[in-house]
Computed example of a mutant assay.
Amino acid sequence: MNAKKHIGKRKARVLLNLLSDLAVLVDEKGRFLVVNDVFEEVTGLNQKELVGKSFLELDIISAESNAVLLENLKKRLQGASVEPYEVYFIDKAGVKRCVEVKGKKVSYAGKPAVLVVFHNITRRKENQQRLKEYAEQIEALVNEKVKEIKENAQKLRESEEKYRTIFEEALDAIVIADAETGIIINCNRAASELVGREKSELIGKHQRILHPPEEIIGDFSRTFKQHLKEKEGQILETKVITKKGEIKDVAIKANIFEFQGKKCFKVYSETSQNRRKLRWR
């Protein structure tokens, strides 16, 4: 009986040594029956120190993993299927390694036993952790960028709202016109009041609508052409005409600037009567 068991042990050890992972045979109480060379190397314990002892008696499995190992050992001995699972293994240097455990119920020396293989996945877990941390960092950066974009968008909305308020409530008349076509893009309430027309009557119309016929040269008003060329930024005297035909003397100062991707005029003009300013933008 002992000879047969000895031969069985030798053959089992030879087979276990074919594996590059830590491999052991344990009985129904979790006591080591056979261990391979890799197991000895990693634990720093030899066959004599291991065989006959339970993994519960040795400090090679972390405390939180002992219960898991024992429970799954019982399941396998009862013929239940157990999926690979993870436990923490402590090597001879005291380093905790994460290992994936796989097992199979076998017969050893005529008695039920379990072949247990421990596959070191510490590096995989470390890489997964690094990837997780990297993903969290990326997510944090993205969230920070999204927050920044939202804050900038809010600031832009507030700035635009502030500009609209200043634009609409300014005492100066302000008109925005395309420098190339002369089409009025926008105007404020003061500009509307200056020429006695609603905004809807001005926006989309040519800037000629603001001047009497004698101030028109070709397709544009005289001052519009002058400001477009050699007299940009200078104050020029001209006239505007109201919807009712009233003529008002004004002094205009104009500059070209970019608005909504177009070249537009910014013109300052004040009447000789009420000192109001008309600004082309």
Score class of each variant (00 low, 15 high):
residue 1 M to E: 14
residue 10 R to W: 03
residue 14 V to T: 12
residue 18 L to Q: 15
residue 19 L to F: 10
residue 19 L to V: 08
residue 19 L to T: 07
residue 20 S to W: 06
residue 26 V to F: 02
residue 33 L to G: 03
residue 34 V to F: 04
residue 34 V to P: 04
residue 38 V to C: 00
residue 42 V to R: 01
residue 50 L to I: 01
residue 51 V to N: 03
residue 52 G to L: 04
residue 52 G to E: 06
residue 59 D to R: 08
residue 61 I to M: 10
residue 71 E to N: 11
residue 72 N to Y: 09
residue 74 K to N: 06
residue 75 K to Y: 09
residue 81 S to G: 05
residue 81 S to W: 04
residue 82 V to E: 05
residue 83 E to N: 03
residue 89 F to A: 05
residue 90 I to A: 05
residue 92 K to L: 03
residue 94 G to L: 05
residue 95 V to Q: 09
residue 95 V to K: 10
residue 97 R to N: 00
residue 108 Y to C: 00
residue 111 K to G: 00
residue 116 V to T: 15
residue 122 T to P: 00
residue 125 K to C: 05
residue 126 E to R: 07
residue 127 N to Y: 10
residue 128 Q to N: 04
residue 130 R to P: 01
residue 131 L to R: 05
residue 132 K to S: 00
residue 132 K to T: 00
residue 133 E to H: 08
residue 134 Y to F: 06
residue 137 Q to S: 10
residue 145 K to R: 15
residue 153 A to S: 10
residue 153 A to V: 03
residue 157 R to T: 04
residue 161 E to C: 03
residue 173 A to C: 11
residue 179 A to F: 10
residue 181 T to F: 08
residue 181 T to Y: 08
residue 185 I to S: 11
residue 196 G to K: 01
residue 201 E to T: 08
residue 202 L to H: 11
residue 208 R to Q: 14
residue 209 I to V: 15
residue 212 P to M: 03
residue 217 I to K: 13
residue 222 R to G: 00
residue 223 T to Q: 02
residue 225 K to R: 06
residue 232 E to G: 11
residue 233 G to K: 11
residue 241 I to D: 01
residue 241 I to W: 01
residue 247 I to N: 01
residue 263 K to L: 15
residue 266 K to Y: 15
residue 271 T to Y: 12
residue 275 R to I: 09
